[in-house]
Nucleic acid binder design. Sequence first.
DNA 1: ATGAAAGCGCTAACAC
DNA 2: GTGTTAGCGCTTTCAT
Lengths: 349, 349
Amino acid sequence: MRHSKRNMPTIIDVARRSGVSKSTVGRALSGGKNINPETKEKILKAAQELGYERNHLAQSLRSGRTGMLGLVIPDIANPFWAEVARGAQDKAAETGASLLVFSSDWNSEREASHLRALRQARVDGAIVNPVENRIEDLNHFGMPVVLIGSSAERYPELPSVGSDIIQGIGLGLDHLNSLGHHRPAFLLGPFGRLARVKFQRAVHDYFVVRGMDPTDLLIEQGDYTVKSGKAAMERILATRPERPLCLFAANDLMALGALLAVREAGLTCPDDVSILGFDGIPAGVFSDPGLSTIAKPARGIGGQSMTVLLDQLSGQTVESRLVLPCKLVPRGTLRDLSNTEPTKLKATG
Amino acid sequence: MRHSKRNMPTIIDVARRSGVSKSTVGRALSGGKNINPETKEKILKAAQELGYERNHLAQSLRSGRTGMLGLVIPDIANPFWAEVARGAQDKAAETGASLLVFSSDWNSEREASHLRALRQARVDGAIVNPVENRIEDLNHFGMPVVLIGSSAERYPELPSVGSDIIQGIGLGLDHLNSLGHHRPAFLLGPFGRLARVKFQRAVHDYFVVRGMDPTDLLIEQGDYTVKSGKAAMERILATRPERPLCLFAANDLMALGALLAVREAGLTCPDDVSILGFDGIPAGVFSDPGLSTIAKPARGIGGQSMTVLLDQLSGQTVESRLVLPCKLVPRGTLRDLSNTEPTKLKATG
DNA sequence: ATGAAAGCGCTAACAC
DNA sequence: GTGTTAGCGCTTTCAT
């Protein structure tokens, strides 16, 4: 039975075919009570035969809930965000909800336009990673919302889910210390961005708390791309003659870029320079050596934020901020200096 | 002005505030003709002040078009498919349409459930990469659809967009030949899958057309994962003593896995074994050496399929099948044997 | 247990 | 140019 989309059967057709009224069909289809099992079966059969498919629009218009949720992230083609999206999507699917995904490209205009689209679609709620450098105050998104990512701090009254980058940085620094890298160089994101400020402050605090000198650390800047990471490492290599060297990058893409630069300079990782990344993207396995990194729980962030959103929608009071722990993923880019004289190279890896 | 989602202003509110009727407001908002510029401005102002936001549900219910489109792909967290999604999303955004993205995980039940959701949401159309091993005949999706990927062949009457893998394979084989790799080993996907059959046939035809012997080629099998690629290479290494060796993998993930195996076996790529991938995923840059591969136009597939879908929706007759060319991306995993004695190793890379 | 009627917010005819 | 009148397909009272 082929029907053009414009003439899909409605409950009225089902009602006619099963000889009952509209409302009875409605009852049968919503699986409610107050219905004779026989009538119900008859109706279901008729619906089946007609190829009836519930019109979600009408249902939503009447009931006020669409069963649609929104997700606004910077870039769906970015492996980290793709994982987040997947986590959110899976959780949404569990409850039968559909997810509208938008990429903002870190652009506040695009973000605003996507939020408007979500509002017009009357989604029940949304998860958004807010663009950092926006002008207007978007404290009211016009719908229930859960924030993800570091800029969630800007909206303290809204529920949010993120990774514990302070803990992650601690994990990284502890690990580096244990391997004998006490004063790594840092490769951070663009100046002024909240994520960078947080990273830098966490490092500073780590040093202070441990009675180490937090000043004069080597800090380079990138923009989270492979290219910028490579460029930064080239700069470091050109100005810092001491070997071995160690770099702690604020994301994996830059770390991988740095690794590329090391290779091109004719040096070896981890013998000459050690590199630690941050994110845990899958591509970290493929480099040679594999990238040691601090992994953020990407899929977990997506899943948990969806859980929080759904809880919020079902009227539960939700914890305002959820912070998920990062995990150390040691692979091959870190050299162990701990039982080696500074001047000698270790014999074995 | 904060309003709970349930009490958002409607055109009636706007009408009241601007002292006109419902329909006039409708006209003003739809930017149509037949409206006094002054009235229009007055209405727009009122809408603005009220924080009015058009209810897409009602609009869609009435007009029969939702402005929503669907995309069903195997896995949004897979870099290749994420690129496809991005391409489709960008193109959709250009026309103001929203995209519902679903991951089927190559599972026909999940696919069916997603298609049902799309039908119920009354999306105007969908782009789908159909799961291969399904039982039922889904020749009618219940909505305008554009197919992507190799299994599109099963539905010859439906429009489709894909990459020209035959041309891509030719590109790869030409390149390998030019480098002196005349009989590479092949690492293909699971037996029985259409993609594999096509690949194998393309290779066979390539050999036959050039008067080369297409029989007794070494063919290994994987399931498109890194792990399976690694295992396959381990098998090859264990059974085939001759070096140098060359492998042409049906996707990049398996190629990268094979590279891992080569490294673990204490061999060197490309000196001992050459590897050519297929897909063009970003992670190919990070391996050492960088993965030489045949790149599929992922984003282009997404964008073009969306274009075809939109054309179809606007009533244009569309070309039934669009095949986009692949591109050779030479990086470092292929050794040049062309001017080298088979028994000697080249001195320089 | 079932039916009738009244909308949800909008657009599309048709009047004026 | 503007207002009136019907619905789109469903859920929700409220009767019966």
